[in-house]
Nucleic acid binder design. Structure first.
Length: 420
RNA sequence: GGAGGGCUCGCCUAGUGGCCGAUGGCGCCGGUCUUGAAAACCGGUAUGGGGAAACUCAUCGUGGGUUCGAAUCCCACGCCCUCCGCCA
């Protein structure tokens, strides 16, 4: 939810943001009207309520003949108050709906345009020279690390088994991510994979992404698509102490995505799957620190990419391709030799106060006044990383070199050899 | 799944229809005293909305109801705790 005060002061700023995103500016005017309507309705209710309260207070002290008159009047008022209350509630709900419809204000400097209009900030590392690179499925099958066929047999398409060194590789990678996070002061966390509707709603995943989310009808719970959901909702309705700086978490969870509408897209291998594992960073900080924190999360991601020795590029995602909560988003895309192109492996978003406002997460400013906090999230490692790791480090004989930093997490192994 | 108990302002707690946005203690903040500290004493200490302000409205797990008036009475739901059963 955007800041309504900002909206009242400078509606044009919000309209400009909508234009950058390619979203209708009418939503902004709808919201303005809903805001005004709510204030008017609230005012009407409160005036009546105030009168009712003061008359009610006089009843016990009134003389018997006064009392009859007062009771008659208050009885009338009670009905009026009830009606005004209902109107105010309706106006409130209308405001909330209009409020939810407006995405976060795009940060200055975000490239305009859609999915393809990102700006490449930098390319890091040399692309490997591999003749006829195998893709991660072939390599993974050779290592008996990835079993797509049995994944499909047991669970359907877009499911897989990681076995042997595949399982070890994922565990090692994620453990290395957690270790790095801890080293940098993040609180390692293992989070619920099932959350209540409020948590899903509050983090903004039931908006345009609702069809991406698995829902357990019988229990009215949702499977999270990322531990961001649980981590963001962790502090719902709380006032945090951010005196000492941002509060940082690294959450480990399995992630579940329906991938509805992506039929036929990236069907091979583990690039786009219904279930994967991830270590996700999440920060709560003061709004004025959010931009700096965003760069810190990006630096964490790049540190991980350096450790696994994968060439990558960093992109500044265009306004039209931002999620509704994000004011800015940087993706790291790893080089995938078999596809001869870069693919997204991390994504870090600065949600400013948008997400925290919805979840009612605040902190105390220098004057001790509660203010809405800012939230940020970013990927540290996921199952998907196995793709560039296997492919970039593949050897002609089908074995895979283990990056040095990862070796301690794989029992000291420096090479993964095919299993006949 | 069954039976019982509970949910009040950071924590503990008082409060069975109007004098209650709510008692007291602890904690925390400020002050007095002290060379400094402790103790003692005094004062302060929820959040949100509207309003330039005075002020006003809402909130005692959540939602409804009764009533002129609800923390207090009624109904439903949620969560926590204890015990029994079941599963692991």
């Amino acid at each position: 939810m955007i800041d309504l005060r900002l909206l009242r002061e400078d509606p044009e700023l919000i309209r400009a943001s909508q234009r950058l995103r390619g979203e209708p500016t009418e939503l902004v005017d709808d919201l303005l009207h809903a805001d005004e309507a709510r204030r008017a309705a609230t005012q009407r209710f409160e005036t009546l309520r105030s009168e009712q309260n003061s008359l009610s207070k006089r009843i016990p002290k009134a003389s018997p003949d006064e009392r009859a008159g007062l009771l008659a009047r208050t009885k009338e008022l009670a009905a009026e108050v009830k009606a005004a209350d209902a109107e105010a509630s309706a106006a409130n709900e209308a405001l909330r709906a209009a409020h939810l419809a407006v995405p976060n204000v795009v940060q200055d400097g975000v490239p305009p345009g859609g999915e393809d209009d990102f700006v490449v900030l930098r390319e890091v590392g040399d692309l490997p020279a591999i003749d006829n690179p195998k893709d991660h499925v072939d390599i993974g099958e050779g290592l008996k690390a990835i079993d797509m066929e049995r994944g499909a047999k047991v669970s359907g398409s877009r499911f897989y088994f990681l076995t042997g060194v595949g399982a070890l590789l994922q565990l090692g990678l994620l453990q290395m991510a957690v270790a790095q996070a801890v080293e940098h002061g993040f609180v390692p966390s293992i989070t619920p994979s099932l959350v209540k509707p409020e948590s899903m709603e509050g983090t903004g995943f039931l908006g345009s992404h609702a069809s991406e989310v698995y829902r357990l009808e019988a229990d009215d719970l949702y499977l999270v698509g990322t531990s961001e959901v649980a981590l963001a909702a962790y502090h719902t309705n709380e006032i945090l102490d951010l005196e000492a700086g941002p509060e940082r978490f690294a959450g480990w969870s399995s992630c579940y995505r329906r991938e509805a509408g992506s039929y036929g897209k990236d069907v091979r291998g583990i690039l786009r799957v219904h279930q994967f594992d991830k270590v996700e960073m999440f920060s709560f900080c003061r709004p004025e620190d959010a931009a700096e924190e965003h760069l810190r999360l990006l630096a964490m991601e790049e540190e991980m990419l350096a450790k696994v020795e994968i060439p990558y590029r960093v992109i500044d995602v265009a306004a039209g391709d931002l999620g509704s909560s994000a004011s800015r988003k940087y993706d790291c895309e790893a080089w995938v030799p078999s596809q001869n192109r870069y693919r997204e492996v991390t994504s870090t978003s600065n949600c400013t106060t948008f997400q925290a406002r919805r979840l009612n997460i605040r902190y105390r400013d220098a004057d001790g006044k509660p203010q809405t906090a800012a939230t940020l999230n970013g990927t540290l490692a996921t199952t998907r990383w196995l793709i560039p790791i296997l492919e970039n480090h593949q050897q002609p004989d089908g074995s895979v070199r283990v990056p040095k930093a990862l070796q301690p997490y794989l029992g000291g192994r420096d090479i993964l050899k095919p299993v006949r």
